[in-house]
C-alpha cells in the first residue's frame, strides 16, 4: 500500500519488541539473583546466575502440590469443556431448536460477566448450598473444574461453532441413511474432521484455566489451591520473598509459553474471541 522507507517501521517495531520483552527479562533477572544482591543497586545487566530460587521452589512440597492441583484442574476443565462444547455445537449446528440463538447469546454472556460479581454467590453456593452429606464442592478439584466452566464453556462453544458449521451436513445425513446411530455419526464421522478445531480449543481453554487467579484464591483453602494463588502467598505485609515470587512466576509462565509455540497461528483468532470476523 505504501512504498515509503521501511526503516521507520523497523525502528518502531524494534523499540516495541524491546519494551515488550524487557519486563519478562527483568522477571528472569530477579529470579536468578542471590537474595543478598537483591537490594543493592538494581543492575540492568545480568552479572551472575544463581538457580537457588528455582531449587527452593522445586523442593517445596506445598508448591509442588499447588502445581499438581493446577495441572489436574486445568487439564480436567479443558477436557470437560471441549467435550461438552463439541456436543453442544453439534446440537446447535445440526438441529432446528427453538430459541437456539438466544441460548447461544446468553451462553456467551456468561463469559462477559465480571468474575468478581460471581465470587460471593459461588462462594456461598459451594460452601453452603451445593453440599451432599459431608461432601462440599468448595476446595475440591471437581468444584474448581466445574466453576471454571462458567468462563471456558462459552469460549469453547464460541470457537467450536464455526468448525462444526464448516463440516458439510450431507456427511452425517449420508451416514444416517446408512443406518449409523447418532453416537456413531458423532464419533466416527464428525470427530475426526473437527480434530484441529478441538485441539486449538483444548489448548486455549487449558491456558485460561491455568492462568485463572481470582476464583481460585476465593474458593480454595488448601486441597485444591493452584499455582497462581501460591504466587500471591509470597506477598505479605511483613515482606515479600521477591526471588521466590519471580521463580514461581517463571514456572507458571513456561507451560503457557510452550503452548503458545504450539498454536501460535491460531492464538490470535482465539483470543479475540472470534468477534472480529463477526
Amino acid at each position: 500500500m505504501k512504498r515509503s522507507n521501511p526503516w521507520l517501521a523497523v525502528a518502531l517495531w524494534t523499540l516495541i519488541s524491546f519494551l515488550t520483552l524487557f519486563p519478562i527479562y527483568w522477571l528472569f533477572v530477579i529470579s536468578v539473583k542471590p537474595a543478598v544482591d537483591l537490594f543493592s543497586t538494581p543492575d540492568v545487566l545480568l552479572t551472575s546466575i544463581d538457580w537457588q530460587n528455582y531449587i527452593k521452589v522445586m523442593n517445596d512440597s506445598t508448591l509442588r502440590g499447588y502445581m499438581m492441583n493446577s495441572l489436574i484442574i486445568s487439564t480436567g476443565n479443558a477436557v470437560l469443556v471441549t467435550t461438552l462444547g463439541f456436543l453442544a455445537c453439534y446440537a446447535l449446528t445440526r438441529f432446528d431448536l427453538a430459541g437456539k440463538e438466544s441460548v447461544f447469546f446468553w451462553t456467551i454472556t456468561n463469559r462477559m460477566a465480571p468474575p468478581a460479581v460471581f465470587l460471593l454467590p459461588l462462594y456461598l453456593l459451594l460452601t453452603q448450598v451445593y453440599v451432599i452429606g459431608d461432601f462440599k464442592l468448595a476446595d475440591t478439584h471437581l468444584g474448581m473444574i466445574l466453576v471454571y466452566c462458567t468462563f471456558n464453556l462459552p469460549f469453547a462453544i464460541w470457537t467450536l461453532r464455526p468448525t462444526l458449521d464448516g463440516i458439510p451436513k450431507e456427511l452425517d445425513e449420508a451416514a444416517f441413511v446408512d443406518g449409523a446411530s447418532a453416537w456413531q455419526v458423532i464419533s466416527v464421522v464428525i470427530f475426526p474432521l473437527a480434530r484441529p478445531g478441538l485441539a486449538v480449543t483444548l489448548i486455549l481453554t487449558w491456558v485460561f484455566a491455568w492462568n485463572e487467579y481470582l476464583l481460585a484464591a476465593t474458593l480454595t483453602n488448601f486441597n485444591a489451591r493452584t499455582l497462581t494463588t501460591g504466587l500471591s502467598e509470597y506477598v505479605t505485609t511483613t515482606g515479600t520473598e521477591w526471588g521466590i515470587m519471580a521463580a514461581i512466576s517463571v514456572f507458571t509462565l513456561i507451560p503457557a509459553l510452550i503452548v503458545f509455540g504450539m498454536v501460535q497461528k491460531h492464538i490470535v483468532a482465539g483470543l479475540t474471541f472470534g468477534a472480529v470476523k463477526g
Partner: peptide
Amino acid sequence: TLPLIMAPII
C-alpha cells in the same frame, strides 16, 4: 503476541 498469553497475576 507474548504478553497476551501471560496470566494477569504474572
